[in-house]
Design a protein around this nucleic acid. Structure first.
Lengths: 331, 331
DNA sequence: TTGAAAGCGCTAACAA
DNA sequence: TTGTTAGCGCTTTCAA
């Protein structure tokens, strides 16, 4: 691997000049520029980013930590962030924490040690203490989808309370009365906000349900399946189910179909997150489509603004979800 | 940010000793070890990986380039690779090339400049010339899902010819005769091998079809949708469709449902790649389930073996897909 | 406009 | 067992 010295020698100039040419700095004669470029080409020289970063104390990489890479919501968000980063000549390193606190800490430490320019994450925990080391590092941070309570950072959230309320009201409007919610983790702001919206809608309509009937689970197909399966085995079945993300929705569909029930004739189903296949899952599922692209784009923009000005007051951007009605809630 | 010098000063030792303690090297008195550890803790010291990597000329990061992060096949593979890497204290940086040659080259250059320990990629092109700069870099490389023709590297592939043959034979066995295949890119080994398997199955059964009827498209929902929509508008409709990945399958389902046709009564559908939602997409779709976890795990193992011994003869591991029959092919 | 040289933070060879 | 020191490859200040 050729180094800057080799290029300098071949071009007959100093390493400083090579560096200037490569960084497109002024004060280099055109002929010299050409010589250097030629040398770079013949040697196939590629600057060593580690050395450059070490010297400049920055990097052109931003880290993106998602809590579940197999959740289409996050791949959509990641895609948007990547596009924004690329437009600014930055690279995105995507890390999957898998809702695992240890993995999350490990990746954060790695990214900090690599001196990344900034970090966007959907935190696995919500207490600011858990992230104190991150906040102390002075690396720009943006949280997405979930909040870190009490942390003075930028964040991009979805209007979970309102969305859950919208979804629940839609079910009530359609005449469903025993609506059970199965939502993502209790220790995430997202899960609790959605539970709140669901409860508020019920309350406002004067619907009284057994308070213990709805629950929080690990937001995976299997957990949705197990919970709904148990639910359907009970005497007092619900007439509608509300799921907290697309993976839970898939699990619920599986349990309902296995129980020999039809959607929506026997039971309605509505959930969070739209995907390309949601219209064709079972009869087509009613969902809250979250503005994934917008969320990712906004998170990236906030991060780049923070990188440019660390004194900027931090802000919380809340984007709205949209109700998309499909057959799963048409009695 | 504290540096190794600060730690050394506080602990009353040299930087070399600090380095030894941190790397768990022998020849350090336990008391000294303790002092150093205490200093590290009080300062909140985190070694600068860039400096360390620069010095050691390696890094603990492996790069994973996938051609489409929204294809569940790749997220499943990525998950497996990540697990393997973690078990070896390595980190995975996931990059999405989006079937874009420019992005692919850009990311490869970034990863090389970062001196990653190795690279796993699903190449967007198949000519070895396009990757010469990568191969020349002497960075360990493993290709996954697709081959780089003529490159002397390790690769993990799926038995595409046999899988496509299996799927086609299954359709023929069920009595379908006008089977149209819509597969991923022609310039990928995967697409062409699947086309070959499809054609071989037809040939062996003596089925003659208009050779131009099947096609290669960009493997996205939209392309699958458009192609199948056009197909269904023709006079001589097919009675079965074979899709090259799950995103194409979703597109096909959409076009079929929009045309007011039923699966499998009016038209059968079978495709590549299983997902959690495939059993509940329309009537449940017959698929070839590729061994995603095994493929990812194997790719990671090959990479780590290559990193340990670069003289090792390179090998190609071909894993078999499995036919999973569902209602979409039951006339 | 150009070059010499210092130094980013770390590791490892060598010396003590 | 521990410390001194020379770089890893680059950028940037300062001087010419």
């Amino acid at each position: 691997m050729a180094s800057i010295k080799d290029v300098a020698k071949l071009a007959g100039v100093s390493t400083a000049t090579v560096s200037r040419v490569l960084a497109d700095k002024p004060h280099v004669r055109p002929e010299v520029k050409e010589q250097v470029r030629a040398a770079v080409a013949t040697l196939g020289y590629r600057p060593n980013r580690m050395a450059s970063n070490l010297r400049k104390q920055t990097s052109n990489v931003i880290g993106l930590l998602v809590s579940d890479i197999r959740n289409p919501f996050f791949t959509a968000v990641a895609r948007a962030i990547e596009d924004e980063a690329h437009a600014r000549q930055m690279n995105v390193f995507l890390c999957n924490t898998d809702e695992d606190i240890e993995k999350e800490r490990h990746y954060l430490n790695t990214l900090l040690a690599e001196n990344v320019a900034g970090i966007i994450l959907s935190p696995t925990q919500e207490s600011v203490e858990a992230f104190q080391f991150l906040l102390d590092s002075d690396t720009p941070v943006v949280s997405i989808d979930r909040r870190i309570e009490g942390a003075n950072i930028d964040s991009v959230l979805s209007n979970n309370v309102q969305s859950a309320q919208l979804l629940t009201e839609h079910l009530l409007d359609k005449g469903y009365e025993r609506i059970v919610a199965v939502l993502g983790l209790q220790n995430s702001t997202t899960g609790r906000e959605r539970m709140l919206g669901y409860q508020q809608a019920l309350q406002q309509r004067g619907v009284v349900l057994d308070p213990d009937i709805s629950t929080y689970v690990q937001p995976r197909e299997n957990q949705g399946y197990e919970f709904v399966k148990a639910l359907l085995a009970q005497k007092a079945k619900p007439d509608a189910i509300l799921t907290g993300n697309s993976r839970l929705t898939v699990g619920a569909v599986k349990a309902i179909q296995e129980a020999g029930l039809r959607i929506p004739e026997d039971i309605a189903l509505a959930g969070f997150d739209d995907t390309n296949w949601m219209p064709h899952l079972g009869p087509g599922i009613t969902v809250i489509a979250q503005p994934t692209h917008e969320m990712g784009k906004t998170a990236a923009e906030l991060l780049f603004m923070r990188m440019a000005d660390e004194e900027r007051p931090s802000r919380e951007v809340v984007l709205k979800g949209k109700l998309i009605v499909r057959k799963s809630t048409q009695p």
